[in-house]
């Protein structure tokens, strides 16, 4: 008898993985709806994995921070002014802004080197900043709300917040990227 069994691994992994690929397929469908426009502006395609990762990373940071704060009693599950949450929210927003600048620089550089259609880096920055900041705000709100609600019901927010945030992260990330790109007049 082995401790790990292939059958158990498949059984326990199948449900959560299937749910997350279904949710991510909707993100894919949104991209597909704009396929023509994206093909014409390849730098936007370059941004896709980065934005998804950013959504996931920001979500994990917020989720874990709020959960720890609730466990430590630093934060009450109520919507009130809280300096601890405020400082963390500010840090998350700053990370999103810095990441947007970095993503713009790197994506513009590789697109230029690859000889893709030239898009002014300032236009790319407009897209990454708009989508990065709105993504951070959405994840902050969702993260705090999910953590508060589940904590109130006696669940451990460490177990609930991150899966919820990361699975909607792909969809919100792609949606906000496409919105920002159309606001910037790129698609």
């Amino acid at each position: 008898m082995t401790f790990y069994k292939a059958k158990t691994i498949v059984k326990q992994g199948a449900l959560s993985t299937t749910i997350s690929v279904i949710v991510s397929s909707f993100a894919g469908a949104m991209l597909n709806a704009k396929l023509e426009a994206l093909l014409a502006v390849p730098v936007l395609i370059v941004l896709v994995p980065g934005i998804s990762t950013m959504a996931g990373n920001l979500g994990c940071m917020i989720g874990s921070k709020v959960a720890t704060a609730l466990h430590l009693g630093l934060v009450r599950p109520k919507l009130e002014r809280n300096p601890y949450l405020g400082r963390n929210a500010a840090a998350i927003l700053l990370i999103a802004v810095a990441s947007s600048f970095y993503l713009t620089f790197l994506a513009s550089a590789v697109s230029y080197m690859a000889g893709f259609a030239n898009i002014a880096p300032l236009k790319v920055l407009e897209v990454t900043l708009l989508s990065g900041i709105s993504l951070a705000l959405v994840t902050l709100v969702v993260g705090i709300v999910v953590a508060f609600i589940t904590y109130k019901y006696g669940w451990d927010p460490d177990n609930t917040t991150i899966p919820v945030i990361t699975s909607i992260g792909d969809v919100t990330g792609v949606l906000l990227l496409l919105l920002a790109a159309s606001l910037a007049g790129l698609i």
């Binding site: 390849p42 730098v43 395609i45 370059v46 941004l47 896709v48 994995p49 980065g50 998804s52 990762t53 950013m54 990373n57 920001l58 940071m61 921070k65 400082r87 963390n88 840090a91 998350i92 700053l94 990370i95 810095a98 990441s99 970095y102 993503l103 790197l106 994506a107 590789v110 697109s111 690859a114 893709f116």
Partner: peptide
């Protein structure tokens, strides 16, 4: 501390993901 550690992790994964994105664009 949050800012520094969070940003470092973020920048490393973004760097790799831009190259994944480049592959996608190709």
């Amino acid at each position: 501390k949050t800012l520094l550690q969070g940003l470092t992790a973020q920048l490393v994964s973004l760097t790799i993901d831009v190259f994944a994105g480049l592959g996608l664009a190709f």
